[in-house]
Structures are given as C-alpha cells and as structure tokens.
C-alpha cells in the first residue's frame, strides 16, 4: 500500500514538474532539498548590498527580542524575524528586516502584513488543537486574504492533520526530539500542505506554513538566543560596513 502511494506520488510529482509547477516539491527536491536551498545562499553571498532594514527592525536589533528564522520556499529568501514587544492577547508579532509582520497564535500563522496577498486574518484553532495534542483528525481552517482589488476574500479549507511520528530536529549544536505533524488542506481554488515539528511541551518549534499565493510556503523555526545574537551581530557588522 505504502509502495503504491509512493509510486502514485512520484508519478504525480513528475507530471507537476513537467508542467513547470514548482509550487510542489518534486521527487528530486524532496530527496535533495539542499540543492534548492544552496543557490539562494549563494545569491545572498554574491549580493553586494544588504537592503537596509526598516527603522523599527533596527530598533529591535538593539534589544534581546526573540528571533525566528524564516525561509520562503518559492523565492529562496531567508530572514531573521524578531519578536516585537507589542502583542495582542495570545497573538505575537514578528517583524522581518523589510518591515513585514508575521502574527502567530501559539505558533500558528494567523496574519501577515507586507508580503502581498496578505493573510488578513485566519482561524486555525482546530488545527492548532490537533497539532499540539499530536492527534490525527480533520480540521476546518478559515483564511481571509486581501486581493488586488482591495477586497477581503474569505476561504474555508478542509484539513487532514496527521501525526507522522517522531523526528529529530537540529537545534543549536545538537538535536531535539520532536513529533512531526502534517496538515493537508483542500480548498475550492487550491490546496496546500503545512508541516509542524512539535516539541515535548506541545510547542511548535518549527513549521512550514502556507502564506498566500504570492509568497507561498514559508518555513519558520524558533532560534535559541545565542544564535539570534550571533546572527544579529553579523548583520549589524555587515550593515555598518555597507553604510560607508
């Protein structure tokens, strides 16, 4: 059964690859994603200019605000998100260098501002309940995006949440044991697959979540404070020298 499923999957993946549909991981990408990641790193290394962060981000760099790593799968863009002091109830706000804000409710992305095709609001509470309890089940997910004509477009997704078993996640210099959860969401216009790595406390340590049609899938990973500090220092040095 498992074999058949994989065969079907690779057939589908090849078809999608043939169709030039890079939104989905092909067999090659899935087995060697580093190849997809590396060109992006190279691009960053070769780029002469680091676009200066927005002033609010520069201010956050001077604090010990928590950090999160983000990686947009389509564009290969990396960023170090910093948690803003301002939050609203259980929703925390994280800012990118360019001033985009990602808002999370216990690790579940509920809003973006500045990505384009922004998630204006999302209710993913049913998925959150299943994922943090590491349970299989079906969840409804409600998402509202801002379209090009300034209208809010609400959509409902039916999502299958599945516990895929234990998974070791690299963190700092070592690894941490997580439970790997998948959420396959079906909508009337499109479908997507979100991934979650759940820590022992039921906390989302890493996730890959669909943001919208413009940026697509983004991986988020919590970082420990020393890593955040190291990356910030290096970014600051880089900015300091390019400023001249």
């Amino acid at each position: 059964m498992r074999m058949q499923r994989n065969l079907l999957a690779s057939a589908l993946a090849s078809l999608l690859a043939l169709a030039g549909c890079s939104g989905t991981l092909t067999q090659e990408e899935a087995s060697a994603p580093a190849a997809k990641v590396f060109p992006a790193v190279k691009t960053i290394m070769n780029s002469r200019k680091v676009p200066p962060p927005v002033p609010e981000y520069l201010a956050l760099m001077k604090t010990d605000a928590a950090g999160m790593f983000s990686f947009a799968q389509e564009s290969g863009a990396f960023d170090l998100l910093r948690q803003m002091p301002v939050s609203n109830g259980p929703v925390s706000n994280w800012m990118s260098r360019g001033g985009t804000i990602f808002s999370f409710r216990q690790g579940m992305l509920v809003a973006t501002r500045g990505l384009g095709d922004d998630t204006m609001e999302a209710d993913a509470s049913q998925t959150l309940a299943l994922v943090t309890a590491r349970r299989n089940g079906r969840a409804k997910r409600f998402v509202a995006h801002l379209d090009g004509n300034n209208h809010i477009v609400q959509s409902t997704f039916l999502c299958d949440v599945k516990n895929e078993g234990p998974n070791a996640l690299a963190q700092g210099t070592g690894t941490v044991q997580t439970t790997y959860m998948t959420e396959t969401c079906y909508g009337s216009d499109y479908s997507f697959l979100n991934l979650y790595w759940i820590g022992s406390q039921g906390r989302i340590l890493q996730s890959r979540q669909f943001t919208g049609t413009l940026v697509g899938l983004v991986t988020f990973r919590s970082l420990d404070q020393p890593t955040v500090q190291r990356l910030t220092d290096q970014l600051a040095a880089r900015l300091g020298t390019t400023a001249q």
């Binding site: 999957a9 549909c21 989905t24 092909t26 087995s31 998948t182 969401c185 479908s191």
Partner: peptide, 16 residues
C-alpha cells in the same frame, strides 16, 4: 520526511 512529503504533496498544487 521526503517520502511523506511527496506523497502528501502530490494532491495539492498550491501555486497552480
């Protein structure tokens, strides 16, 4: 989780 990923993602064409 390559195999799982591919198997599940075969359904969806997120950016279609």
């Amino acid at each position: 989780d390559g195999s799982t990923t591919v198997a599940s993602e075969g359904f969806g064409t997120p950016m279609a």
